[in-house]
Design a protein around this nucleic acid. Structure first.
Lengths: 138, 138
DNA sequence: TACAAGATAGTAATTTTTTTCATTTTCATT
DNA sequence: AATGAAAATGAAAAAAATTACTATCTTGTA
């Protein structure tokens, strides 16, 4: 059985071609696409994919913990399926998002936060905000 | 001159009653309200406030760096004007958001990230994801 | 292979956010 | 205090994003 399908099944999600395509697309891209972008990217190879299916799938994948949703500017929510923890650097002006390695180990932090909140904290996301070089020069 | 008005003027924003009200509301609340929630909260005291004005103001305040925008579930963007850095703890299931103190000092991290990216990083936001006690017990 | 649960496309409906624009307000300068 | 340019406002309309619905398929299991 193909690997992606197996992962989905382990999460009690059926491995439909659409879901596999959406998940693999997100795993493969370094961008942080919106639902619309995902749809546009996959439509050629999946001609009868519908936007509603994209939304339903990012929701189910998010609930399963396979991707993160976040929002920064006025372009709808963005999705990110990178499994390793990393930080996002966001330009306040143009809303570009870069990935960088975490500048610190978060394992200890997660333990601390778990104790503080009585929750089982599994993920830490860090966002750094500033103005990028391009926008400075304008 | 009143303090909030002064802050706004320093950011080249005109200190209109609506803008002052929105900003002070966000400074004062521990919640992470959506535009709609802000509107509903201020409408009684500002009867002819319009939702469009709320949107325009959170945008201008965000561009000025006076507040942060983020999104978690399917209820529109949330806004947070807390000036001190803090972390958000998010329940994956019910989307509740708690504020906690930062579990680590981020000054060093920001310097590191500034160097890595050639940006002037001024803010770090941390999000911890997990499942809260209430949702565990369901 | 058949079956039940789950997923899909397509569309409609809803919700959220942005734009438009005529009018009003702010604020630095007289 | 009056002036005027730039910015902000409210109301309505428009656009964009998201969800709901339904009849029809598919998946994964037995």
């Amino acid at each position: 059985m193909e690997n992606t399908a197996k992962i989905l099944n382990q999460k009690n999600l059926k491995a439909t071609p659409q879901r596999i395509a959406i998940y693999e697309y997100l795993l493969g891209t370094g961008d942080h696409p919106t639902a619309e972008t995902i749809y546009a990217a996959l439509k050629p190879a999946h001609p009868n994919l519908s936007l509603a299916t994209v939304y339903k799938n990012v929701a189910s994948l998010k609930d399963a913990g396979l991707l993160m949703e976040f929002s920064l500017g006025g372009e709808g929510c963005r999705y990110d399926a990178r499994t390793y923890e990393h930080a996002h650097v966001v330009c306040r002006k143009c809303h570009k998002v870069f990935d960088i390695d975490l500048p610190a180990d978060t394992a200890e932090h997660k333990k601390t936060v778990s104790l503080m909140t009585n929750m089982d904290i599994d993920t830490c996301m860090m966002y750094y905000y500033g103005v990028c070089e391009d926008c400075w020069n304008k």
